[in-house]
Design a protein around this nucleic acid. Structure first.
Lengths: 212, 212
DNA sequence: ACACGTCGGGACGCAACCGTACCGTCGTTG
DNA sequence: CAACGACGGTACGGTTGCGTCCCGACGTGT
């Protein structure tokens, strides 16, 4: 049998956390700098100040390394996010999304991996687990609460609602890369709420329908 | 001087259009298959059934090749897009966007290049010319017409409106990659119109605000 | 104090690609 | 009809990265 009794690794024969951490840091930086397509293990090792062997001892391949770190980065911190009103929930959610996408690393890595997911099934599966599934859960709950409160129509489609909630902010921050102001976020909350079918808050000035 | 009289290239000494076309085709396919990061001239030449030299005679570098072809692909076809109503304009615009993003090549290449634009200034500049500028023009006109008709508030911010118009559909087609039905598009028109501040079309069923 | 066993580092063979130089080929122009 | 001149293709050196192997160094447990 191969399950002989063995002394557990100890002393110098144990993975050093500082090196593992350095690899993780270097990977995220490399990923942001050159993207998944050009990512090379050697560059990660150089940036981390570590040997390639140190990486290959911890992960089998480039893909394993990326998947593990992406999954780890997305886990954790899941805001409670129930403020009692649809607009409050939206504002809080937008703050969280904006905060995450403001990180230069995240705003480069996420679009890159999402594009790569279109041709790499493993990345696609991982991202669906850690991003899409979570979004659907958060968005679905947000919508369900609003429907229960009577703020949204009962026939609201959660998937379509998520597109409407996430799409505009993602577009502005990750694609168009335009600046984001507080007043923009305020307006976005109102626009998305209206788009979802919530009652409008205030009438706004309009031109006369027929000016001739 | 170097401007001596020279016979103009003729006969076999002129670039063959069929080869240029084959290179363009192969580039788009390679771009979709492996992305800009992994794109190699050799692979393009192989796929086109052409020699590397044939490519290097026409373009100086990988970047030149991609930029020229991307710019060319985005030029042309600019729909008139004035149906007389905001909802009509939105429906037509969504049809056009959906049609463009349904092409598997486009739906892989566009997110890839948009991600690459975050780290490559040349690509960024080109995409802003052929994509963002055009979107702002189309979206700006659409919004301006709607404001003039009295369908939208006079203080509508065109940039924010574009985020609201383009974001959800781009998210669904290019990122989440969920299916797109006619009824989804219909609902999206109504949602975006409402989000922009247009009068709602029909009341929809709601739960009682207080159910206790 | 010693033996253990993994550690990180460097070196290696292999493969892919870049960009260029050189080759014979071919159609047009004078 | 002959010379022109750019054509497409092949071959080349240089560079980069992959994944593996071997080495001395090191800290713990007996």
């Amino acid at each position: 049998m191969t399950t002989e009794k063995r002394r557990a690794p100890a002393g110098a024969a144990v993975l050093r956390d500082e090196i593992t951490t350095a690899i993780r840091r270097a990977l995220t930086q490399e990923l942001a700098a050159v993207g998944y397509g050009r990512l090379s293990i050697e560059a990660v090792a150089r940036r981390a100040g570590v040997s390639k062997t140190a990486i290959y001892r911890r992960w089998n391949s480039k893909l394993d390394l990326v998947l593990e770190i992406v999954a780890a980065a997305a886990h954790g911190k899941l805001p409670a996010l129930d403020t009692g009103t649809l607009r409050g929930d939206l504002a809080l959610l937008f703050q969280a999304v904006a905060h995450a996408l403001r990180h230069p690393l995240a705003s480069q890595i996420i679009p890159d991996l999402l594009a790569e997911a279109a041709r790499n099934p493993s990345i696609d599966a991982t991202l669906r687990q850690v991003l899409h599934a979570r979004q659907q859960e958060i968005g679905g709950r947000l919508v369900a609460r609003a429907v229960r409160r009577g703020e949204l129509p009962t026939d609201t489609d959660p998937d379509a609602a998520i597109d409407l909630i996430v799409g505009p902010l993602y577009w502005r921050l990750a694609i168009a890369r335009l600046p984001l102001t507080d007043s923009y976020l305020d307006n976005l909350v109102e626009s998305v709420a209206a788009g979802l079918g919530a009652d409008s808050a205030l009438p706004r000035p309009r031109a006369a329908p027929i000016s001739g």
